[in-house]
Amino acid sequence: MGLRRTFHRRVEAWIARRLPVSDSVTLNQSRIFILPSRQGMVLLLVAFVVLLLAINFESSLNYALGFWLVAMIWAAVHFTYRNLSGLTLKADRASLVQAGEAAEYHLKLDSDVDRYRGPLELIHDDWGLVTAVMDGEETDVSLSRETDRRGRHPLPRFRLESRYPFGLVVAWSHVELDLSAWAYPEPIDQDAHHQAGSDAGDATDDHFIHSGSEDFHALREYQAGDAMHRIHWPSFARDQLMVKAFVDYQAADEWLDWANYPSLMGEQRLAALSWQINQCLADDRPFGLRLPDREIPPGKGPAHTEQCRRALAEFGER
């Protein structure tokens, strides 16, 4: 077992040097490997036996059969190689998900030649076998793998195979694209912990008021310059010159701050901030995010939410 692990590590290191990571990979003769499949090995064995019989018995028919079988193997190598040759794999986009959910990786397969390349198999332990049928100049492929933690989840090196059209040989290449999905922390309610700068009995005020014209607020004494239509005439009848004061209500910008959880460890703080984001979304409140290395101004909407969640996912990863 130790020798096998050592051998696999050395093979992986050799592949990494020969096939480096990139945003886009074009398959050519230096990246494509070909070997006979099980059926191809059986056919080669049969051809070898037939040729031995032809040599031994000097049979022209056996010669013809033996060379015909070898020609089939040669044709399979040629056509299967063409399925991968010139194919370009490009990193498109990857998803932002909650830790523990499945991340999606989207790739594009391009070709300068418009031809049918048959079914192509993308193989890795994380997603098993995904088949993409290349019939034209472009096709899209989606790969999925589970996330088990917060942070960056790069697309692993996978194996691309083709056995079309005869299944007698396998042409493959190892591909590693520079594409990463991100997982933001699973939300955890940490309100039971003491927050810095607040008392246990304090309540969050979601609004502030300023002078305006929308809602009646209170009566106040008349001041020079006040409009006549705002005079409170019932008070004037009691020899008190009062005017009606109006105010406008405006939603307060709520800041979700790393510093609000001094008693928590780093990952727990991120989980608490993730929970607060969900609460603001549920209440349709604008919010901003403050982290030690980043500050996102208050806002609302899907794009703002994704920006804040991505900031939590990327914290400490770059």
Score class of each variant (00 low, 15 high):
Asp126Met: 04
Trp233Ser: 02
Glu12Arg: 11
Pro297Glu: 13
Lys90Glu: 14
Gly118Pro: 11
Trp74Met: 07
Pro36Ser: 06
Ala313Asn: 00
His210Tyr: 08
Ala64Ser: 01
Ala227Leu: 04
Leu96Met: 12
Ala200Val: 12
Ser30Met: 09
Glu137Val: 05
Arg152Pro: 02
Leu96Ala: 10
Leu270Lys: 11
Met1Pro: 11
His304Arg: 03
Gly167Gln: 02
Pro156Ala: 03
Ala91Ile: 15
Met1His: 11
Gln268Ala: 14
Leu53Gln: 01
Arg10Val: 09
Asp202Asn: 04
Asp199Cys: 05
Ala218Phe: 00
Ala71Ile: 03
Thr204His: 14
Asn278Met: 08
Pro302Phe: 02
Phe67Ser: 02
Arg290Leu: 08
Asn260Asp: 15
Val21Ala: 15
Cys280Asn: 12
Thr147Tyr: 03
Gly201Ala: 10
Ser213Tyr: 01
Ser95Leu: 15
Gly299Val: 06
Gln39Tyr: 14
Asp226Trp: 06
Trp127Tyr: 13
Tyr261Val: 06
Ala303Gln: 03
Gly288Arg: 05
Phe79Trp: 15
Val70Arg: 01
Ala203Gln: 10
Ala282Glu: 15
Arg82Trp: 14
Gln195Arg: 14
Tyr63Arg: 01
Val97Thr: 14
Ile123Phe: 04
Leu270Glu: 12
Tyr63Ala: 00
Thr6Pro: 06
Val21Trp: 02
Met265Arg: 14
Phe33His: 08
Gln195Ser: 13
Pro298Arg: 04
Trp275Cys: 06
Leu52Gln: 06
Ile231Cys: 05
Trp233Arg: 06
Arg38Thr: 15
Ala181Phe: 14
Asn278Ile: 05
Leu129Lys: 15
Asn28Leu: 06
Arg5Met: 09
Val21Asp: 07
Asn28Trp: 04
Ile55Gln: 03
Phe246Glu: 04
Lys90Cys: 12
Ser274Met: 10
Pro297Trp: 00
Ala13Asp: 12
Gly118Leu: 09
Leu273Ile: 10
Asn28His: 10
Asp191Phe: 13
Ala103Ile: 11
Glu137Tyr: 03
Asp257Trp: 07
Gly212Gln: 03
Ala16Thr: 12
Val141Leu: 15
Ile73Glu: 02
Phe79Tyr: 14
Leu69Ser: 04
Phe246Met: 11
Met228His: 02
Leu289Ile: 02
